[in-house]
Nucleic acid binder design. Structure first.
Lengths: 239, 239
DNA sequence: CCAAAAGTGTTAACAGTACACCCATGG
DNA sequence: CCATGGGTGTACTGTTAACACTTTTGG
């Protein structure tokens, strides 16, 4: 049993995925998703949970603490012949790296030249094993999550402007959101205490834009309204 | 590696799950989800895909052809100590049995007294392994799917009335839908060719109700409109 | 006739969409 | 002063939710 990771980030308004070039057969020299075997724990070696294995691989491949990243189980692929070495079942995970952390990602241990590749290009080129299918599944999950949960905040620096968040949506949904309408939805989140103004201005365009940040714990007493808000952040529709 | 199945049906306006009583240790005599080991295929025995293993177990436990049932991968549980026998990772699947087929379900091979238990009761009683957590996850998935795909048709006989389908939604969402409003949404599906009138009337209440059936392949030329419809049935919002 | 469920109508509130517009500022 | 992007207003649309209403039937 292995875990494979689909790690996304957003650079230059383009969705990127972290791929490695395999140094060992099978598929030596080809592009693949980072991953590795789950420590089962025979005898005296302690085993690890699946989530722990995914977090460990994530840290190994990115050099970033897993706690700072979004990580979620994606799907398990277990076709008989997906690995020429024999029967290998892989639990795929799906991770997001905030773009301000992406430059710190360095090549991992068991693979050459880890690197961010544009998802479009990755889908165009050939990948090892059934990793193309895994990537497609991850992409579908990402779009779903962006549509119905607050996951987009994981693809933006810790403080951001309305336009920056809008760019994330534009890029992932592949459409161009109306600036005015998007702003209104955004401000509703501020009203609801999901976001809050942050100090400073962003000097990106001509006119400086207001900067916001995600509010980790909602303000006010934990009334029923806040409960709902928490639920929304985890499962519900936000933007 | 095992597969475990969470098999739901709807009887007497109550959501039921299929549980078995274990005949072997560990957890002998306790209630558990049906499941079994995946055939890996060492040596000359052929292995099986995960989906195939789930379908096989599903047929073994229910006596019904898997083709007639809804089956979808749910989540993979791999905590180190979830099975006292050693390291066992389980891929949980989620299945639906139409209520008109539920009475034909008989006890499976490796377990006593398979039976439909009310989900409320099942969550109240203790289950083997981490099966309670799996059941909770399945319930969450069911509610999600009912909300955003056409899965409810899998919990209704092949022909049904507006009120019968509404009862499915009421039961799973735990709310009472307005009869009139529900009817309008329902009729929109008929307009769109997703449903079609079926011959006969249902004599359930005082006034006989019209009967409908699910339309497997949409009518008309396969234009772009039909493509969208197909997409909706698979992924999108329907009711 | 009456109860009960099928089926219809009406309306207010709300969210999404499109698009026109004002405002502030760096060059 | 002007182009650019931030930020605002507004009218139109379709969907939802609440609820009152008519119709049809078996008992």
């Amino acid at each position: 049993v292995t875990v494979d990771l689909v790690i996304f980030t957003l650079l230059d308004a383009d969705l990127k995925v972290l791929l490695v070039r395999r140094r060992e057969p099978p598929f030596r020299g080809e592009l693949a998703l980072p991953g590795g075997f789950v420590r089962i724990g025979d005898g005296d070696l302690p085993g690890e949970d699946l989530d722990a294995a995914a977090a460990r691989e994530l840290t190994e491949e990115t050099g970033l603490p897993a706690r700072a990243l979004y990580l979620e189980q994606l799907y398990t692929f277990g076709e008989v012949n997906r690995d020429p070495r024999g029967r290998v079942i892989t639990v795929a995970y799906f991770a997001l790296v905030r773009p301000d952390l992406a430059p710190f990602v360095v090549a991992g241990g068991d693979a050459d030249a880890a690197g961010w590749l544009s998802v479009g290009e990755a889908l165009g080129s050939s990948l090892a094993f059934d990793h193309r299918r895994i990537l497609e599944k991850a992409l579908a999950r990402l779009r779903q999550r962006v549509g119905d949960s607050a996951i987009a905040f994981e693809l933006v620096p810790s403080t951001f402007t309305v336009a920056e968040l809008r760019a994330v949506y534009d890029c992932i949904e592949g459409v161009e959101n109306d600036a005015g309408n998007f702003r209104r939805k955004f401000l509703r989140l501020v009203e609801d205490g999901v976001l809050e103004p942050a100090p400073g201005k962003r000097l990106t365009g001509r006119k400086p834009a207001a900067v916001y940040r995600f509010r980790r714990q909602p303000r006010g007493a934990a009334g029923s309204e806040e409960e709902i808000k928490k639920h929304d952040l985890e499962n519900g529709t936000v933007l």
